[in-house]
Simulated assay, not measured.
Amino acid sequence: MVHRPDERDDDLADLERRVLTTDGIETVVHVGGRGPAVLVLPEMPGISPDVARFARWVRDGGFAVWLPSLFGVDGAYPTTELGEPIIRRACVSREFRAFAGGGTSPVVDRLRALARVAHDECGGPGVGAVGMCFTGNFALTMLVEPAVVAAVVNHPSLPLDDPGGLELSEADATAVRDRVERDDLDVIGYRFDTDRWCTHARFAAYEALLGSRFDGRVLPGAVANPDPPPFFRDVVGTPHSVVTAHLVDEEGHPTVQARDEIIAYLRRRLLP
């Protein structure tokens, strides 16, 4: 796959590109801002301009944002031509568990290690994690790491073949449930009510696992941006990405309110 630069690409020039090694594995991370760290995990097909925009909103909310590169072309505008092969590779990658029965994706170990590094560097009571789409549930399973004290699961889509499933092992499910009770944590999540990739059954599974400590918030699909980038229009094909591709950047819009609620949640957990 060769990426042809598009005038709508984001060069990420205002973020520092770092290469960090954890457990012998290198990860490119784009970092900016000051304050407690928040890991913003990219959605398919990568760190799009909309994902970078959300990361900047988090940064400007008073945090050091850490944006790890997990797949795709960093900063690329998400076209169908770019995105389809990225999905296919991710679904067969040993780092990800895209289908039911696979348990927790191995990449989460790397993200937990990054959270430890971020906490050591940035201080504060802990680290926040915001997952989206393919990485949505990763934010939840990162709570096994003691440094992570806030988790946002945005429109989690895995496992792709089980609308009511959760992408985590039984051991991690037990560990997360015990951790949120022991340390008095809460988890928030967002989806559109007409989303075919993140359904009511998915949020019901979170509620069954976490009880009242999961706050699943649902927006009408009718308010989603009707003109998202081509990948989301042609491949995703449904209202899905609440605070990125399907956000409508207008004051008072429900998707902007969701963005503000996420930042307020992070401030409550990380800036007491």
Results as ranks from 00 to 15, higher is better:
F232Y: 15
R17K: 14
V187H: 04
G128S: 14
P146L: 09
R233L: 12
L266H: 05
V58H: 00
F138N: 02
H253S: 06
D193M: 11
E81N: 12
L82W: 05
R268Q: 11
A115W: 01
E251Q: 12
Y265I: 07
G216N: 04
P146G: 07
G103M: 06
G237S: 15
L210D: 00
R268K: 10
C91A: 04
V28K: 01
P42C: 12
A13N: 11
P5D: 08
T79V: 13
L209Q: 04
T22G: 04
P36V: 08
R94W: 15
T135R: 02
A100M: 13
P5Q: 14
L67S: 04
D234N: 14
S105D: 09
T199I: 13
L210W: 00
P49F: 14
L70F: 07
S241T: 13
R202S: 08
P272V: 06
Y77F: 15
M142Y: 01
R4V: 12
F96A: 03
Q257M: 11
N225V: 14
A90T: 10
C91T: 09
V149K: 07
G103H: 06
T22V: 15
N137V: 06
L70P: 07
M1L: 03
A13S: 15
D120Q: 14
V187F: 05
P42N: 10
H240I: 07
D227F: 15
E81P: 13
V242E: 02
V176D: 00
V117Y: 03
P78M: 13
V65E: 01
V29T: 05
M1N: 09
V223P: 02
S157Q: 10
